[in-house]
């Protein structure tokens, strides 16, 4: 029998392949590709929902900070006291800082002096998630740009990538700098980046985001941008709206009525 090693392996491989094919036909519940279907029953469909927010800057006037206080309390956002270490999820910017590329020539002076509410835009094309080396920040199935704080290594690439300054870094341990500990949401630890999460912890309980709920002027409207008959879509169709830095192509999910 003159059979060299190479020939034997070739034929043995062919035999294994034939066995695989025969077994796949003979056993309907074949072990190599077993999928537990119970894991898929309530999995959301990516892209079906896209949460968005519309901010009516005509109603959001004065020095009201209800939404900011409520958000920062509910999410245990620390206050380090120095702007150098500032951590913020939602804040007010001057009109020209919020819309630096919008034309301000001969603009209504009242508009130019407005303080515009700014937060994470939950972009449809988020540059931050592409910069993250550990996939700690990612776009969720419902359009929310989320951070997995367990996985964040604090490299701050996402902060450099975000064109809106929506992300803050915990330079110090946030725990001792939280005035009133809220039980609604965990805190963070030193060395992670944090930002607005569109209140995903409230959305699972079928509640509106804390800022929307707390606004006394009802200037914030929250809803599903992919649903044509939602309130936010109707208002977007009926009003002239703006997004922040639209020319960057990040497709923000936060819109403004000026």
């Amino acid at each position: 029998m003159s059979q060299n090693r190479r020939e034997f392996l070739k034929k043995a491989g062919l035999g294994a392949l034939a066995g695989l094919g025969a077994a796949a036909g003979l056993f309907p519940a074949f072990a190599l590709e077993q999928t537990d279907m119970s894991n898929f029953t309530d999995k959301p469909v990516p892209g079906k929902v896209r949460w968005g927010m519309l901010i009516d800057t005509r109603k959001c006037l004065g020095n009201c900070t209800e939404c900011i206080v409520r958000c920062h309390h509910d999410h245990n956002v620390p206050d380090f006291g120095k702007s150098k270490n500032e951590v913020k999820w939602i804040w007010k910017s001057g009109y020209e800082n919020a819309f630096p590329t919008a034309s301000t020539q001969f603009q209504n002076p009242e508009v130019l002096e407005r303080q515009v509410l700014t937060l994470c835009n939950h972009c449809a094309e988020p540059p931050c998630t592409k910069a993250c080396p550990t996939e700690a920040t990612f776009k969720r199935w419902d359009g929310i740009v989320s951070i997995d704080y367990h996985r964040c290594i604090g490299c701050r690439f996402c902060m450099a990538a975000c064109p809106y300054g929506s992300r803050s870094f915990n330079w110090l341990d946030p725990r001792p700098n939280i005035k009133e500990l809220s039980t609604a949401y965990p805190t963070r630890m030193r060395g992670v980046v944090e930002k607005c999460n569109f209140c995903s912890e409230r959305l699972v309980k079928n509640e509106l985001p804390a800022c929307v709920e707390s606004c006394p002027e009802k200037a914030l409207i929250f809803g599903d941008l992919n649903k044509p008959d939602s309130e936010i879509r109707k208002l977007l169709a009926a009003n002239e709206t703006m997004q922040r830095k639209p020319e960057l192509g990040t497709l923000p999910s936060v819109f403004y009525i000026i």
Binding site: F8, K11, A12, G15, A16, A18, A31, L32
Partner: peptide, 22 residues
């Protein structure tokens, strides 16, 4: 027949691997 022997050897390897995975 040499081909058949090799085929049987391959099948044996496959069956062993399958039971191992199970």
């Amino acid at each position: 027949s040499k081909f058949l022997v090799a085929l049987a050897a391959g099948l044996a390897v496959f069956v062993a691997a399958w039971f191992f995975m199970q």
